[in-house]
Write a protein that binds this DNA or RNA. Structure first.
Lengths: 210, 210
DNA sequence: GGCGACTCTAAGCGCTTGCTCAGCTTCGTT
DNA sequence: AACGAAGCTGAGCAAGCGCTTAGAGTCGCC
C-alpha cells in the first residue's frame, strides 16, 4: 500500500470518515465479505461475525444491508473521482495528465482491489435511488477522463477518432484491474499503474517526443 | 446478431447442443435471469417461471442450480476459446491474426453480452470442481492470445516489453465489453469489434504499413 | 448516586430459499 | 388394450435469510 492511503502511523485511512469505531469495523468486515463472495451471497450474520459482534448489532449502525453497500460504494466512488480530478487539475501537457490519471487510478484499483471490486462490480445490488446517485458519480468520472482526452486531441497530442468510445475503453481497462489483480502476483500496484499508463498513451496514439 | 451465430433459418444456434427442448428453455431462461440479477439473486422459481414451468420441473433436467450455471459457463467458454483458436490458426501476419482474434472475440461479447456476462462474471459462484475446470479453459484462452502476441514480437511487428502482462490487459479490455455493452447503444457489435481491434494493435505497438 | 442515552446480545419472527416427492398425464412399444 | 418410462405439477419440508424486539450492561452528566 502506498503512503498516500495511510496515516503517518500506518493505519488505513480509507474508512477514516466512518464513525464510531464499531460502525467502521462492520463496514470493513462487509467490504471483505462482499469482495469475497459477492453482495447477495453474503449474510448479515457473516458480516457481524467478522466484526466480532452479534447479528443484531449491525442494525444499530445501519438500517439495512443495502445501506452498508451504499456507504461503501459512495465512499469508494468519491475517492476514485477525487483521484482523477486531482490528475486533471495538475499542471502539464494532456499526455502527462492522462498518464498521471491512469497511473494513480490503476494503482488505487490494484492496491485496494478488495474495496474496488465491491465498488465497481456490485452496483446492480443497490436499490434504485442509491443506484441513481452512484451512476451520476460514474458519469462524472467518465466526463473527467473524456475532458483530458479531448484536450489532448485539441492540442494535437493524441490521435483519437472517437473520444467518447476511447474513454469507455480506457476506463473499462483500468477498472477491470480490480477483478484480476492479486497481491501475491508478479507485479506491484505501482508497476501495474506505470504499465497501464503506457498502454493508455498508446491507445490514444501519443508519440513520445524523446 | 451476425449470421455466424444463427442457423440458416435464423434460430439462435448457441444452445443447439442442449436437449431436450425443455432443458434448453430452462437454460436460456437461466442465462437471462443470471445476467439480469446475478446468480445468487436469481431463484429457481424465477428460472422455471421464465421457462413457463413449475419450480420442480427444473430438477428433472438439472441436479442443482449450480449445474445450470456450469453448463452455461462451459458452453460459453468453449465457444470463446473456439473463436480465438480459429483466429490463431488463420493465414496471415501476426498483426492480422491478432486483429482478427480481437474483432471476433469482442463481437461475440457484444452480440451475446447477456451470455457473456454470466460466463465471465459469475465464475466465483461455481463449486470448486466446476470452477477448476473453467479456470483451466481460461488458461488456454490466455495462452492462445499470448502466442499470437509473442509471434508478433518475434516477427518484429510488435513492440511489447511484457507479453504476459499485455495479454492480460488485452483480454481484460475485451471481456469487459460484456459488462458495458448495450444493444440500444450508439454502436453495433461489428463496430465495437473493429474499434477494439485497432486499439489493441496500438497497445502492442504495431505501426500500420500503409 | 441516580438517570437517560447509547451500545450490544439472546432469542426469535415471518418469509423465502433450494430442493423433494407422491401422483397425474402422455407417450411409444407390444 | 396394457404397460413401463419419461415429463411435469402441487404441495410442502428443512434450513437459512434479513431484520426486530426486550432487556442487560455501560457510560457521561447533573
Amino acid at each position: 500500500m502506498s503512503a498516500a492511503e495511510q496515516t503517518p502511523g500506518g493505519e488505513d485511512v480509507t474508512w477514516g470518515e466512518v464513525a464510531p469505531e464499531a460502525a467502521r469495523r462492520l463496514l470493513v468486515a462487509a467490504v471483505e465479505a462482499f469482495a469475497e463472495r459477492g453482495y447477495h451471497a453474503t449474510t448479515t450474520r457473516d458480516i457481524a461475525g467478522r466484526a466480532g459482534m452479534s447479528p443484531a448489532a449491525l442494525y444499530i449502525h445501519y438500517k439495512t444491508k443495502e445501506e452498508l453497500l451504499h456507504r461503501i460504494s459512495r465512499i469508494g466512488h468519491d475517492r476514485a473521482l477525487e483521484i482523477l480530478r486531482a490528475a486533471e487539475l495538475r499542471d502539464g501537457a494532456p499526455a502527462d495528465r492522462l498518464a498521471d490519471a491512469v497511473r494513480s487510478f490503476v494503482r488505487w484499483h490494484a492496491e485496494r482491489h478488495t474495496t474496488a471490486r465491491v465498488v465497481q462490480y456490485e452496483l446492480d445490488a443497490l436499490g434504485p435511488e442509491h443506484r441513481a446517485e452512484i451512476v451520476e458519480l460514474r458519469r462524472e468520472t467518465e466526463a473527467t477522463v473524456r475532458r483530458i482526452i479531448e484536450e489532448g486531441v485539441a492540442a494535437g497530442e493524441f490521435d483519437v477518432a472517437d473520444p467518447a468510445g476511447t474513454t469507455v475503453a480506457v476506463l473499462s481497462l483500468c477498472i477491470d484491474v480490480a477483478r484480476w489483480f492479486n497481491a501475491q502476483g508478479r507485479r506491484t500496484p505501482d508497476e501495474v499503474g506505470a504499465f497501464y499508463a503506457d498502454l493508455v498513451l498508446r491507445m490514444v496514439g501519443y508519440r513520445a517526443q524523446k
